[in-house]
Design a protein around this nucleic acid. Sequence first.
DNA 1: TTAATCATGTAACACGTTACATGATTGC
DNA 2: GCAATCATGTAACGTGTTACATGATTAA
Lengths: 188, 188
Amino acid sequence: MSLKHGILGLLNSGPMTGYELDRSFKRSLSFFWQAQTSQIYRELTAMEKKGWLISERVVQEDKPNKKVYSLTETGEEELKKWLATPEADIENALSIRSAFLMRVFFAGETTEEEALVLLRAFREKCLESISANDSVYESIENYGKREVNEKRMKYWELTARFGEIHQKAALEWVEEAISRLEKSNSNS
Amino acid sequence: MSLKHGILGLLNSGPMTGYELDRSFKRSLSFFWQAQTSQIYRELTAMEKKGWLISERVVQEDKPNKKVYSLTETGEEELKKWLATPEADIENALSIRSAFLMRVFFAGETTEEEALVLLRAFREKCLESISANDSVYESIENYGKREVNEKRMKYWELTARFGEIHQKAALEWVEEAISRLEKSNSNS
DNA sequence: TTAATCATGTAACACGTTACATGATTGC
DNA sequence: GCAATCATGTAACGTGTTACATGATTAA
């Protein structure tokens, strides 16, 4: 239920519209949890039905009208309850779900040259992501200074740091994988 | 569609029942793709309807009867087509989906002490997983010798190696995260 | 005038999870 | 006698993805 709890967590910093939540999500939580706009609107409807949120329609003259959501007491309690029971998520915290690795697993059904093309493409991806990291920290600082308190920023940075370490580990892996394959290629 | 293609890939080594596919999945692919038994049976039904597989009922006397699935030509073509178009999966190959990191992100809503409890529990999990890795390689070798050819084993090992590197990176991250928090704790 | 940003959704389908149901055989 | 392994599923629900629909305002 992480999408619901992500929304609760964001709304705990103050009321927001679905549109704003969507942008917040993509700016911060999308490092480790991706959600479509349409999914966010659907969840908001469901969460209001559950009594975790209430919405208020705000009329605007210059822009389209909007619907501002805020936490109810029930919603706050639910957030606290969730924060207090992390066991199941720690249990699965190391599990990976990767369609890319599925392809690596079955690369034996193709030629070694094709496998190398796959791995080299992944290496490029790793290098790209790593070189984009500086701007990530910049945007955390810029955004954080304005709208988020320091305590919250600290944990945001920790999650970004996870992404960074993850990317570097992936690069390390693919370098090793490529050189293993190239070695076995020249032996054959 | 990775579950379907995982099944195609496994059946490409030879016909299997849903029960055997389920065990294969859990033994090998579950490092990077988890699937429930019931999901596998549902996919098999759907894939047969699509014409990718055919099933044959085999009567057994000592054990319950079973239903053996094999690839059709259409299924083989689909597998080849999938292997030839990895672009989208490489694009998202570095993306993470982690309910645990969602909790880290929102750990600012609790006390620093609670955050440390969370991170220490994760560290334990990392250490556990890392110490379980030797047996992983052992079982790949044991299983691989019997039923899988050498070319396939190589890629299996690569995916397992990814898991290992990932675990070590996670440990590195959590050690750093804990010491950062402990530092800021003593400053406050 | 055209793209970008603001703003909210519906519908259909695909995929994942949980709980339940059934019943045979083998080894301790 | 009891647990483990063999073997196959259904039903309901929850979550994720894709495509589509609508329409206003602002900046280039």
